[in-house]
């Protein structure tokens, strides 16, 4: 029996008359890489904000890492990591200072932080750059550093909001290697993306259209079900009827 780590039942977020997220339900299993797909404006960022505790749902139930999204947001925040689509480290702090700051937020001790810093910079191959300002690093390295910092406290789940935007294909591949490594360590990965080739790297994906989840399964089975050669085709079939779009 696989453990469920995120449990969502009829979760809704309403702004006035507009239902940004309309009664969605799904489960995420412990240790899986869960792709949360949807076009711009489909409601995936709003849904994610409710799960990470910075937006209160209008209706429905959800539990993240066993904690309620209404009453136990503080507990949720301690047990998750988050990387936003905007680059979210401090450019005018050094690599080491960024690591120290974020590790300190999660209550790591000084010895843990020192050990983590060495381990992390070695793994990313930026040990020599540890005392340089983050602003001087190339974008790809910054993204990888941001991911490493998002999981520095060994969270139960890491939420990634379009983490590979604007990154070259090689770095994207390396980035996904890091995601796999994190998943192998038992961290559940919840990732939004609109690169459909990336969707194929996920264990399971959900596709959101106009605030509702239209499909949820492993990429292979979705392609079979919709008789498509790629996830891109699946997505186009599902999103064809979309009324909401940013563009």
């Amino acid at each position: 029996m696989e453990q469920t780590i995120i449990e969502v039942r009829n979760l809704t977020k309403q702004f006035g008359d507009f239902k940004a997220v309309n009664s969605i339900s799904f489960d995420v299993r412990k240790g899986e890489i869960f792709g949360f797909l949807g076009a711009n404006g489909a409601g995936k960022t709003t849904a994610m904000k409710m799960l990470i505790g910075i937006s209160i749902p209008s209706a429905g139930e959800a539990k993240v890492a066993g904690f309620d999204v209404y009453k136990e947001t503080e507990q949720i925040k301690k047990n998750i990591g988050y990387m936003s689509q905007k680059f979210s480290l401090y450019d005018d702090l050094t690599v080491r200072e960024n690591i120290t700051l974020f590790a300190g937020i999660y209550g790591l001790t000084d010895t843990e932080i020192a050990a983590r810093t060495v381990e992390l910079t070695n793994r990313l191959g930026i040990a020599d750059e540890a005392d340089k300002l983050v602003a001087s690093l190339p974008l790809g390295w910054k993204q990888k550093l941001a991911f490493s910092i998002a999981v520095i406290h060994n969270p139960k789940i890491v939420f990634l909001d379009e983490p590979t935007g604007g990154v070259d294909p090689i770095t994207r591949r390396q980035f996904w290697d890091m995601i796999y490594a994190a998943a192998a360590e038992g961290i559940t990965v919840f990732v939004t993306t609109h690169y459909m080739d990336e969707a194929e790297y996920c264990n399971r994906v959900s596709i959101m259209v106009d605030g509702v989840i239209k499909a949820l399964d492993s990429p292979a089975r979705l392609m079979q079900q919709y008789n498509a050669k790629s996830m891109e085709e699946v997505f186009i079939i599902l999103a064809r009827g979309a009324k909401r779009s940013d563009n």
């Binding site: 925040k77 988050y82 936003s84 689509q85 979210s88 480290l89 937020i105």
Partner: peptide, 13 residues
């Protein structure tokens, strides 16, 4: 504006 506030809001701080 930089988006760092969002990350801080998601953290336990």
């Amino acid at each position: 504006e930089m988006g760092t506030m969002e990350v801080l809001l998601v953290s336990p701080v």
